[in-house]
Design a binder for these strands. Sequence first.
DNA 1: GTGAAAGCGCTAACAG
DNA 2: CTGTTAGCGCTTTCAC
Lengths: 334, 334
Amino acid sequence: MVTMKDVARAAGVSTYTVSATLAEATNVSPELRARVNDAVERLGYERNSMARALKRGSSSLIGLIVSDITNPFFTELVECIQNEARQAGYSVLLGVSDHDVERETQLLRLMRSHQAGGTILCPAGDVTDYGELRSIAGQMKLVAVDNAAAGMGIDTLAIDNAHAAKLAVEHLLALGHRQIGMVAGLSRQFVGQQRLAGYQKALAGYGLAFEPNLIGQGSFRLEDGYHACKQLLAQREAPTAIFVANNLMLIGVMRALHEAGMKVPGHVSVCSIDDFPWATAFQPALTVVKQPIAEMAAAAFRTLMNRLKGGKEEPAHAVYQVELIVRESCAKHL
Amino acid sequence: MVTMKDVARAAGVSTYTVSATLAEATNVSPELRARVNDAVERLGYERNSMARALKRGSSSLIGLIVSDITNPFFTELVECIQNEARQAGYSVLLGVSDHDVERETQLLRLMRSHQAGGTILCPAGDVTDYGELRSIAGQMKLVAVDNAAAGMGIDTLAIDNAHAAKLAVEHLLALGHRQIGMVAGLSRQFVGQQRLAGYQKALAGYGLAFEPNLIGQGSFRLEDGYHACKQLLAQREAPTAIFVANNLMLIGVMRALHEAGMKVPGHVSVCSIDDFPWATAFQPALTVVKQPIAEMAAAAFRTLMNRLKGGKEEPAHAVYQVELIVRESCAKHL
DNA sequence: GTGAAAGCGCTAACAG
DNA sequence: CTGTTAGCGCTTTCAC
């Protein structure tokens, strides 16, 4: 392994000159600078980030923890944050919690151990799970996205999930549906709770009673959507429309519907939260509530950078606007 | 920041004892071990991976470079490799090259700079782009997956892309299609070249002439599929079937077909390479050639670990079996 | 404008 | 079984 010392020797200068040249300091004479660059090139030298981080007390790493990278929402979030980070000269250490608070905790420790100055976290759990979150994080800055609510003591960014769900369900209601099923998400997460609450609120707004049999419980995974939908279909009074709490479960729902020979929106209308590339390729194109992912990703990174630069404001909870995108998967109930 | 020294002082032992306890060495008395663990707990100590890596000369990081994480193939690959790595005590530093060889090179340098012992790379370019790959990598071990061919001087894992394409096209041929269009991928990548070659080979096997007008050129991105498909549809003699070189472009194709009011498989049959979760949720469910992603991911990681442990075999090129999964998107041509 | 030298926090060889 | 100590490669202060 070629070190800075080697480069210094090859260039006939001290390690300081090498370090300064690499850091693009202004006080190195053009001549030495050239000799250094030449030696770097010739030896194929690459600066050791570990030694650098150790000395400087901080690495150029940020942590990014998501619960499930195969969920298109998170995929895009990772893509966007990764981009932001690269442009700012940071690299991302990726962690996947698989919706497991335990594993999330380990990952947080890992990020800290790697001297990540900060971590963007898509929490797997509830606010109650995060009592010791601050102590795990230590000096590391934390920003929570998606499954986050005010009161975690850190900066958070999310949509108004109850509102998003309400929007979708009201769309169904406005089309005349009264038997509206829901494939709900993890009830121990805010996101799951709030989307269910939004559904109930929409129903209540129309003077409709909440019917527990119309709720299929899931945990945001594909298979959950599949099974919950089958279960819904088996009801005495099957729903004429189904609201699905996220896109991964929507896949499962569509698969179940497909298998059952149910046409969308002919037999049953479907809408869900989270837009994704496939939504328009579908026949019918899928009606969804869209979260502004790129915007949230950029803001999350910006928020983290602010903290890294020593921002001392009170932790803020930013709420992002969603948009109902009406396509073709919901029809009037006759 | 709490260091090992702090822990040692708090526990009334030397740093060695702390280090040994943390390393689960067997030669620390239970009593001291307990005192150390207690102090670690109390102080919220987390070992500094940077210092550790610096001292040991290697970090517990592996690099993972993919060209596009929103491509479900890569998403799943990342998911799988990430899982393997975690189980083996490694963390993954994620890089996205966006099909750009230049950026890929930078990422490789980055991985090296972070002391990644090895990197799993999904190359963005052609073999000719990799003359200096070894010098960029330095001591770092490299394993190439997906867009890789023998002769890169490193371990590679891939499917037989020509065969995969041939399989798909022959399926179309067997159904009676003779006007078969193709939405091809980046011609500067192996994968793109070989899938096109497979298409041509299948045609040749049926004594059919290659018709350049039936090829829509793309670069594996969603929009390419969309535009290439539109272009194909505008031909004097529009194809009765379309073979799409990857799943991201397939989205674009399905979107274009949807917009044009073309029914699948009524008006046009469609098949592509890469299975993905949505394929069965679609109506019709999509016929695809499936790559054994989990298997390849596990093998890639295993191969890398072998090199990390000093394996000295000749670089090998492992070829994986694909499988044509016939679903509903291809119908007999009447 | 440049060099020498002191550590950053940790591991491991050596000494007890 | 435990403590002491010499660096790992780098940045940066201080001296020239």
